[in-house]
């Protein structure tokens, strides 16, 4: 069971996981004690002819002991849970380089809104504050690593719930409310899968050049996703077999870029295996929101600081966008 939590990449996620494991060990011990006692009693006190059960109505001392013990244990668990809950849900850390993003949920998309170069979410057109340079994209969220990301959560129709499993982030989004949530990604690229088994032999063979491996790994990557697509009935192609993949070599690793699908993978040769890293995290909706609830899915990209700056320059409208031209709101300028 311990292996089943998705990898954690957020600062507070590790603390949540720690609580999870503490409760896991406590409940596991209690369960095995209770189940063990029960099985023992069932065997030891099974019916036999001529035996007579012990006539007792209970034991006050024993009952007081287990009542008080449970009470104290539960109270302690509640009290130690409180500070972490407060840090996650009540106190958004305020830092200089904090990134603020407004997420508006609607059936069945996430509207991700950045304040644009002026750093202000656009106020009504007649207001003096800010310019109309907000940048909105559907379903894609880009954030820098090691930075507090503050989310202003809204909904246009029904209740949705933003869920990023690897960030241990979940918060319902309620129409009529603006709810603040936050996370801070500790890691950008994490290991997704390994091509070790298929490539073990090739890697062990010294006569095969790195060039060949490079080719091989990109073919392997494509094959991996093709298998997955088959599983997914080609609903959400991740890297189509005919995708144009550009490959960069960087030391002992290669960067695979699929421009059309905006996916980037880092492939590293480690311990005799080819490990594939990615900075892409899914954002499912966790609250039933209608017939399209399943598949309401966004993507979170956790960038290195340089990548994030590059992404901003590449996609955000320039700081001096004309306020009158509202089309700037929707279309990113290249």
């Amino acid at each position: 069971m311990l292996d089943w939590l998705p990898p954690n990449v957020s600062t507070y996620g590790g603390e949540i996981d720690k609580f999870f494991y503490v409760i896991y060990y406590i409940t596991a011990v209690v369960f095995f004690l209770v189940a063990g006692a029960m099985i023992l009693f069932l065997i030891k006190y099974r019916h036999r002819e001529g035996r007579r059960a012990t006539y007792t109505h209970g034991n006050a001392t024993l009952e007081i002991v287990w009542t008080v013990a449970t009470f104290v244990a539960m109270l302690i668990l509640a009290l130690v849970s409180k500070p972490l809950w407060g840090r996650i849900k009540q106190q958004v850390p305020m830092t200089q380089n904090m990134v603020t993003i407004q997420v508006t949920a609607k059936q069945f998309n996430w509207e991700i809104l950045y304040p644009g170069p002026d750093g202000e979410f656009d106020t009504p057109a007649d207001s003096a504050a800010g310019t109309l340079d907000d940048y909105q994209i559907d379903n894609d969220m880009h954030v820098p690593v090691n930075t507090v990301v503050r989310l202003m959560l809204k909904s246009k129709d029904v209740i949705h719930s933003i869920f990023v499993p690897q960030m241990r982030l979940k918060q319902d989004m309620v129409p009529g409310h603006t709810i603040t949530a936050w996370f801070n990604a500790e890691k950008d690229y994490i290991l997704r899968f390994s091509l070790g088994l298929e490539f073990q032999e090739a890697l062990d063979n010294a006569s095969i050049s790195d060039d060949f491996l490079l080719q091989f790994s990109s073919i392997g990557l494509v094959q991996h996703f093709k298998n997955m697509e088959e599983l997914q009935k080609e609903k959400t192609p991740i890297l189509s077999s005919n995708a144009v993949v550009s490959i960069q070599e960087a030391g002992n690793s290669w960067i695979l870029n699929d421009e059309s699908l905006k996916r980037k993978y880092i492939v590293k040769k480690e311990n005799g295996a080819l490990n594939v890293y990615s900075n892409l995290y899914e954002i499912p909706c966790a609250e039933l929101c209608g017939f399209g609830h399943s598949g309401m899915l966004g993507h979170l990209y956790v960038h290195t600081p340089e990548e994030y700056e590059a992404w901003k320059i590449q996609t955000w409208p320039p700081a001096t966008a004309a306020p009158a031209d509202s089309s700037n709101l929707e279309t990113p300028q290249q």
Binding site: V34, L42, H47, T54, T67, F71, L77
Partner: peptide
């Protein structure tokens, strides 16, 4: 806090069921 506390009576019941099995002729 209130939810953690409601575990107490449930635990009491479980322990009492175990106590009922103890020494029985099942």
């Amino acid at each position: 806090v209130s939810t953690m506390l409601i575990a107490v009576p449930s635990a009491i019941k479980t322990f009492n069921w175990l106590g009922t099995l103890w020494g029985g002729n099942i």
